[in-house]
Design a protein around this nucleic acid. Structure first.
Lengths: 359, 359
DNA sequence: ATCCGCATAGCAAACGTTTACTACACCATA
DNA sequence: TATGGTGTAGTAAACGTTTGCTATGCGGAT
């Protein structure tokens, strides 16, 4: 813009107070170096008077902390992640950090670009939802000498602090609930299973089937073709529609469907509705995430809750603890899934788990 | 972290290439100062070899552009804004800027805090959804000698570039559509009308009523008590439930309701559904925004579209043009509302507008 | 032969801090 | 009286760039 009004510097203050810049700096940077109370107060007063605010860049040039936290997620447009971001932001503000939101859209190159950018900005730390356990990404993170906390995507590692979620158990619980309510032919509808979290969720599903003595049918794993999440909010929703279409094309309709997330479930339900198939009367649908919309749609969605806000809050607090070199905090937290019973699953006859000795 | 591996600086490069740092800087900062081709290439080669990346802080200390763009919005958790943020992010990445997302939750103090923070970081520009036309905020923005583009909240001003939206027309269109489909007793359900955009939308509603010769009833303006948007995604949804409750408590149920936004409409519809009132058979509901979920709920929501992605894209491009001192671009854009016809409004007998000479 | 402009390059200051080092006065202890 | 600690303050280097100024050599115009 036109004419910068020359911000006040410690030099100005030093001149007025008739002391050296060193002294001013000591006072204004909250150093524990002793400065006479009288002088300290005078400097503080002048600083306030001149509306002094330190130049962050020179501080950082001297190696100070940038007070920025990189937050790498698949997509801000996805309501699950935008809520996560909101909770991260809340904690950041409280501790005077600034979150830098980076959507990776599941593309490694973009993720790499973001990481480079964050490195260049010397962020104080990074909160990241690691999508793959590729050695490449992991090594890249290890080399990045900054504070890192993993979240959202379960990836326990001695190398990183993390806030995890029991995806396996979540998949198990979803399946078990369906089985116990009389469903046997259960489809699993998902975007490609390359993510660790999705794989685990799927494994939970398989294990539950096994435990209840239900044979898994290959055609019940319904996977859409898409690779990368698009930029739009309704990506998974559209995906759900596709999956529903695929399911309708099967020779035999399943009793129930487990969707890889709530948005997908919405798409599935909507497609069914448009095709005169009633949920849950004709077919049951189970979601995963429990995003706020789950209770807004009709029928309201029975789903497994993933504690979004808690995840964001804990992960951010963990990271800040790490940055500020606190020592007394948990370095790994594993959050538990919780079943949220609503109206998208039909309750048929109750079925109990086959005990081992039944077999 | 443990031991920083000492990043390479132009000094290292200068030493190897046997030239001065000035020359290295000139090459590496794309200055137009002439440097012999041979030397230039050598320096470039060495830089690449040592994986040199410039220290942003020293550059900024010298007054360079921070390449950051502050984005101030009411709340990231709100799907409308998270989609907006996504489109802003997309443009930013293309031009190598980094968006800094700031949720103000409609609290002036927080907004002020964010602005202070952005100022301190010497951001290249700010994209802001101005909620009030308080002189305080406006002056504060004017004094902020940085590039500013207003968006989302219509506030045309000679002092700022802006991407506007015709809220007045939107309100008019919503109302007109309802009237033309046979509704006369139309309630307007909203959070407090302190925002300019809401006021305009409301004025459009009033004007349409007037043009169609329908007398406005005071009790048809239903306003919830809440002041500030909360941090959660479902704030407006809950608000909608409250509003629906208030409406149900009226002695006479209106034919139709215009909700201040889609999320509010969802809440209203949901509350009605829970109370055995069928939308649109018993009462029609009209939304505003056309967020992706509008077509996911049941009944799908008839609403007025506000072009989110276009807004984000245009505003960001405008700001970057401004930052980079381009001159040939529009400084004010006004986007048009569009009616999206779905299933939440019942079509009764068509009614035409009273012509002026009818009166 | 002189002067000028131009291409090229280096020197060193400057951006605003922080901090290692030095200085010195004061007081307590041996 | 010498010794040393402690509280307080200043000097100047350093962080990694950019850039105004100066310098040199060279070709062309006068």
């Amino acid at each position: 813009m036109a004419d910068k009004p020359k911000k006040t510097t410690i030099l100005d203050i030093a001149a007025i107070a008739n002391v050296s810049t060193a002294t001013v700096s000591r006072v204004l940077s909250n150093s524990d170096y002793p400065v006479k109370q009288e002088v300290r107060e005078q400097i503080l007063a002048i600083a306030k008077d001149l509306a002094y605010s330190p130049n962050l860049f020179s501080r950082m040039l001297k190696g100070a902390d940038s007070k920025e936290i990189g937050v790498i997620i698949p997509s801000v447009a996805n309501p699950f992640y935008s809520q996560l971001v909101a909770s991260v932001e809340g904690v950041c503000i409280k501790h005077d950090y600034v979150p830098i939101i980076c959507s990776s859209y599941n593309t490694p190159e973009l993720q790499l670009k973001h990481i480079e950018m964050l490195k260049q900005r010397c962020v104080s730390g990074i909160l990241i939802s690691v999508l793959t356990t590729d050695d490449e990404v992991i090594n890249q993170l290890k080399e990045l000498d900054t504070n890192i906390v993993l979240f959202d995507q379960t990836f326990e590692s001695k190398d990183f602090d993390s806030v995890n979620f029991d995806f396996y158990k979540a998949g198990y619980m979803a399946t078990e609930y369906l089985v116990q309510n009389g469903h046997r032919n259960i489809a699993f509808a998902t975007a490609p299973l390359e993510r660790r979290s999705r794989k685990l969720f799927y494994k939970g599903y398989r294990k539950a089937l096994e435990d209840y003595g239900i044979e898994f049918e290959v055609t019940n794993l319904v996977v859409s073709k898409v690779e990368n999440d698009a930029i739009t909010t309704d990506f998974h929703y559209q995906n759900g529609k596709n999956l529903a279409k695929m399911i309708l094309e099967k020779e035999k309709l399943p009793d129930a469907i487990i969707a890889i997330n709530d948005m997908t479930a919405f798409g599935i339900i909507n497609f069914f509705e448009a095709n005169e198939i009633v949920v849950p009367a004709d077919i049951s649908v189970m979601g995963f995430d429990n995003i706020p919309f789950s209770e807004m749609i009709s029928p309201s969605l029975t789903t497994i809750e993933q504690p979004i806000n808690l995840t964001g809050r804990l992960a951010t607090e963990m990271l800040i603890n790490k940055i500020e070199q606190k020592t007394d905090y948990e370095r790994t937290v594993k959050l538990e899934p919780k079943l949220i019973e609503r109206k998208s699953v039909r309750k048929k006859n109750k079925i109990l788990r086959k005990e081992k000795n039944d077999l």
